[in-house]
């Protein structure tokens, strides 16, 4: 039975697209068939982060409007056979998405894949609403700062009221993915701590992704960080998060400050 997962946050720039790509790749590495769907019509990015921007012919809008078949629009990843991308249109806007069109595509995707991962646009308007509409599971991406946390709280409220699952009276499964976490800054009080965020949002924690240059490097290379450098700390954190989505229970690692006392004493080599 396919699972539809929406990656959402309310606030922009917190790492939805990066997390979509990384989680999608990690789930695909476990042998399950995965499609990542870009709902950010007009401002598409997922194709770049997945390194497929030169292979886009048809997009989500073409499929919802019946101008192309789903199989024509799907792009198979070159590195992983089980990973697919359904890109958004860059030339249209969110009004081009219809509720019926999205419903039809989601039904087809459910029949084809084990995981359908929808990358939501920022905001709480039509685009974000359609992205979360059909979801069974939501990953709420949050940065450890107050504005992101409040926006996530808002999105959780919408997940509990505006999705098909909520309208049927069922309970929406929600997970918190805390990204760009910097232990040092959290300890100095410059960022919210993990416990603060969990207390405010009160949904289960899926993972903590440390702030890392590795993530930016992977995005610029057009490779999900879980594929580009699987041994790096953010990649391991994403892989663990993907395993938890699969129902495995894995101990949560709070990223440690690399520079321990020892590191501070011998941190730099003399010139």
């Amino acid at each position: 039975m396919a699972k539809v997962l929406v990656v959402t946050s309310g606030k922009g720039g917190v790492g939805k697209t990066t997390s979509t790509a990384a989680l999608g790749a990690a789930l695909a590495q476990s042998g399950q068939s995965v499609v990542v769907v870009d709902f950010d019509v007009g401002l598409r990015n997922l194709d770049l982060v997945m390194g497929a921007e030169r292979r886009v012919v048809y997009d989500l809008i073409n499929v919802t409007q019946g101008d192309a078949k789903l199989s024509q629009a799907l792009i198979r990843d070159k590195r992983l056979d089980t990973l697919h991308l359904l890109p958004a249109s860059q030339t249209r806007d969110k009004d081009a998405l219809t509720e019926e069109g999205v419903a039809k595509v989601m039904e087809e995707l459910r029949a084809k894949f084990d995981w359908v991962i929808c990358d939501s646009p920022a905001g709480i308007e039509r685009g974000a609403w359609l992205a979360m509409r059909h979801a069974d599971v939501a990953v709420v991406v949050t940065n450890p700062e107050v504005s992101s946390v409040r926006d996530s709280d808002r999105i959780i409220g919408l997940l509990d009221s505006k999705t098909l699952k909520a309208e049927r009276g069922e309970r929406m499964e929600k997970h918190l993915l805390l990204t760009r976490y910097d232990t040092g800054r959290a300890e100095r009080g410059e960022m919210l701590k993990v416990d603060d965020v969990l207390e405010i949002l009160s949904i289960p924690l899926l993972g903590i992704i440390p702030e890392s240059e590795e993530v930016l490097r992977a995005s610029n290379l057009g490779t999900p960080v879980t594929l580009s450098n699987p041994a790096s700390t953010p990649a391991r954190a994403y892989s663990d998060a993907a395993k938890r989505l699969n129902g495995e229970s894995i101990t949560m690692m709070v990223p440690q400050n690399r520079r321990s006392l020892f590191g501070k004493l011998f941190g730099r080599k003399a010139a």
Binding site: R150, D153, G157
Partner: peptide, 23 residues
């Protein structure tokens, strides 16, 4: 949650959980 509004003009309101910032 933030952004939600609960209006009950006829009596008390009891919330078993938290009321988010902006609610």
């Amino acid at each position: 949650r933030s952004g939600q509004v609960i209006i009950h003009p006829e009596g008390d309101v009891i919330v078993t959980g938290s009321v988010g910032s902006g609610a």
